[in-house]
Design a protein around this nucleic acid. Structure first.
Lengths: 377, 377
DNA sequence: TTGTAGGCGTTATCAC
DNA sequence: GTGATAACGCCTACAA
């Protein structure tokens, strides 16, 4: 950038018109060595309070900003964390990222964010890119298409701390933070049972994804606990889009003995099913009680409001960062992998509880609202 | 990290159990100088094809990853961009960030993301942090409380490329990408006029924010164009939360001559107004036509579906990156500030057009859907 | 309490 | 075509 090679080596320009000030500049100005500057700035004990003051004052005056690149290069450890998510849209991932950034920032780390676009090759490139950027650790939620995990082994071989969240590599050899999806499925289904439903159907997602597999498992667990048989004809598998929810419901209603309850493993599918039920003249929840999964914003806007499972997105981000920082601080070695399991929260609403609630005044929370009333110009 | 100080200086371990391989390692192994390695890797013309092959092969074999910290330190230019947003939640900011990351990644840049939490002090710290990280440029959407802009001047003095988006510093001295909010307000209001409405009210946001001021201006422009008087009694100012939309509507309906159309400057407020109207027994859109702003997901779930204005979030992110990269590539100097203005898109739905549409089959788009059907394990 | 010097991994500038 | 060398800004033994 702007050249620091002034002809006068004496003092840096009092009103720097560009370029950044380095420790060397401060040292020259004060007539001391860089060591002293470095120590004063990092509050080393061997620096006198007088000197420390002088240095800090000058640093402020010239608006000195440490060059973290140089520091990281020297120390072999940066203050950067990497995130790899399938995409940054919808409700879930942005919320988790929000939690991650907040926690990381509190610990003095910046966060580099990458999207895999659900593509394994892209995911691999993301990791290489983060490796190149010398991040201190990486947080990953797997792409849908990832079926080979060698690129993660490579990280581990390098001793780079790695934590998975939500979409994780199975097994206890990895660090991971997940929602207890089984519990979520269990709670939903048990809730429907408690509402007196006995023929409960399930809209299940792709079973190669652990989250959907576990939600389905919870569904079966609750049925079994209630002494009801597992009836695969009541389970419809699809990709959980809204229209597929509608389609699935049409299928279920065509059964000789149609369901009176429905646990959908996703809110979009739940919404599709709800709308289809209403189109077919069914009353929800009286004729058919419905529950979804994810606590999407629109579940509060639909009528009736949709019972769903909250995934604790922010907590997940925070927990993942906590775990990662522990590994980083432990120097990487001698850290045995750990899995953190978050308890989901069943949010009971109108789609599963007749007359239990007056939907007409529920407030839909806008993230911006939390700042309403902030002091303002 | 793992010490590179082996006792044998000959070759790096053939199966490195940790640590990263550097150019020096490759040079030693091949018995050439680091210069050669560097040039071969960066495809310099003065390197023979034979040598180049050898180097690339070895790099692959040892899985060499360039250390971008070192490169950036040496060159004074990193491959990092910084983003500062008020928060990463809701629909707008995540979508813009998505656009930014996608465009940046395509150009070989990684993105560091920071949240100001709508707080000016935090915003200032974010900038310092990014400065410290030696980013090549910064993208900012202002915090609500920012009323002093000196921290941005500081960046400019350093010659650091800076682009604002959506919430921008006013004036033509800055680089900025914004939505034409005035046009959005104008299109909405004109649409209501075309539906035959003559008493059109406006739910306006805080007027110190340019976006809300401009939406209001568009509203007045459309009225004037239609030869209708600007009636301030039909304008209600608040913070655009859902409940405030309901409250505002109560106020408007209490007027001696209540409105038959309503342009709300935000979807949450529009939703609140819609629900309140229905509670009061009004038919929407027959008795009251309503339009919102932002194209939130839930506008497709509400009944009737809500007419709204799409903000082109992704395009905004892309445009901002394009502008920033231009500045970076131009070497910073001699680049005259530019403002990019995106055209909003009016999305007409049921809340403003009687019988124009059958709401019952509209598909709500889940971001995940775009990957449905991807090849999978 | 302070200073000197070497090096982190890369690249630019010379020289051969 | 290739090599030696000196930075970039910071940290940290080791000396003084």
């Amino acid at each position: 950038m702007a050249s620091p090679k002034k002809t006068e080596p004496a003092a840096p320009a009092p009103t720097p018109t560009g370029s950044s000030v380095s420790m060397a500049d401060l040292a020259r100005e004060l007539g001391v060595s860089m060591t002293t500057i470095s120590r004063a700035l990092s509050d080393h004990h061997s620096i006198g309070p007088a000197m420390k003051q002088k240095v800090l004052r000058l640093a402020k005056k010239y608006n000195y900003q440490p060059n973290r690149l140089a520091s990281a290069l020297r120390k072999g450890k940066s203050k950067l964390l990497g995130i790899v998510v399938p995409y940054i849209e919808g409700r879930f991932f942005p919320s988790v990222v929000h939690g991650i950034e907040t926690a990381a920032s509190k610990a003095g780390y910046n966060v580099i964010i990458c999207q895999s676009n659900e593509d394994m090759a892209q995911e691999r490139r993301n990791l290489e890119s983060l490796l190149s950027a010398q991040v201190a650790g990486i947080l990953v939620s797997l792409a849908r298409t990832t079926n080979d995990f060698r690129h993660f082994d490579k990280l581990r071989n390098r001793g780079l701390p790695l934590v998975f969240f939500d979409r994780v590599v199975e097994g206890d050899a990895v660090n991971a933070v997940v929602l207890d999806d089984r519990e979520g499925g269990y709670l939903s289904t048990r809730h429907l049972l408690q509402q007196g439903r006995r023929r409960i159907a399930h809209l299940a997602g792709p079973q190669h994804l652990n989250i959907y597999k576990n939600r389905r498992q919870g569904y079966f667990d609750a049925l079994r606990e209630a002494g009801l048989p597992a009836d695969e004809s009541l389970v419809v598998y699809n990709d959980m889009a809204q229209e597929q929810g509608a389609e699935a419901l049409r299928q279920l209603l065509a059964l000789p003995n149609p369901p009176d309850g429905l646990f959908a493993a996703g809110d979009y599918a739940a919404l599709g099913a709800l709308q289809e039920a209403q189109r077919q003249g069914l009353r929800v929840p009286e004729d058919l009680a419905i529950t979804g999964f994810s606590n999407e914003t629109f579940t509060l806007v639909a009528r009736p409001t949709i019972t769903t499972v909250d995934q604790r997105c922010e907590e997940m981000g925070q927990a993942a960062v906590r775990l990662l920082l522990e590994m980083i601080d432990n120097g990487g070695e001698g850290f045995s992998p750990r899995q953190v399991v978050l308890r989901p929260e069943l949010v009971v609403r109108g789609s599963s509880t007749p007359g239990d609630e007056d939907d007409s005044h529920v407030a839909v929370r806008n993230p911006a609202d939390k700042f309403v009333g902030s002091p303002v110009a």
